[in-house]
Amino acid sequence: MADLSNPRGTRPKSRFTLNNIVLYGILGLMSIYYLLPLYVMVMTSLKDMAEIRMGNIFAPPVEVTFHPWVKAWAEACTGLNCDGLSRGFWNSVMITVPSVIISIIVASVNGYALVNWKFKGSEVFFTILIFGSFIPYQIMLYPIVIILRELGIYGTLGGLIMVHTIFGMPILTLLFRNYFSSLPEELFKAARVDGAGFWGIYFQIMLPMSMPIFVVALILQITGIWNDFLFGVVFTKPEIYPMTVQLNNIVNSVQGVKEYNVNMAATMLTGLVPLIVYFVSGKLFVRGIAAGAVKG
């Protein structure tokens, strides 16, 4: 029998085939398409207004200045406040951190219970939960305003955190449920024979095996909540507006001249957090998605 374990013969030459030229051509064009706006933003944010008025948006700055970044962070005015985006940044941190932590904890326990501790009606419960994610947000805005008002937390950080936690539930529960159901059922059974209970199995058996899916959930939630605009503007007051709302207010402020350099800098500052999260954990993210998120 032929030995098939190693490739034989000369390696096929393939560098300049038509296929590759087309492939890399398209990849190149796509990269330019996406990178060009970023390039323009960075360049503009490093120019002063005099230079911007001269016109060429593609030209690199003659004189590099970081003042627009400083201004965007600490001095730009929205309404009566003139402390830039920094206020919004800290608001966003205070909104995102608890929302992410609470929603992931609750959803992971949900998913675990739905897979391993099925109760009467657990399938119905799950179906309703998933169904909830198909209702457009706009329909629910007003009822939620009323609910928050009745609970006395309308316009507070707590109220917004609760809303984010609840709206993250369907997709996160689905994510965790699918992941946990991809783990072998016999492990769970073995742990039960070994006398571990609901929390014992969750913390000692399931958690250590589920890091990839927690990373996925973390990224989804951090970017989703950080980038949220709608809930922030509807459910909070100006002092606690998240960064996205603040950004909008800076960029769209009608008084005075449009400071394009400050706007560009502010936009990039706002996008920085999700960007960093992606860069730091991109690999883990892909691995986690592959590990369990795709299985029905």
Partner: peptide
């Protein structure tokens, strides 16, 4: 409860705790 029955169980897939 399974742990109170005085049984030990061995599974087809071994079911060892991987971590």
């Amino acid at each position: 409860e399974p742990s109170d029955r005085g049984i030990g169980m061995v599974f087809q897939s071994y079911a060892l705790y991987p971590q």
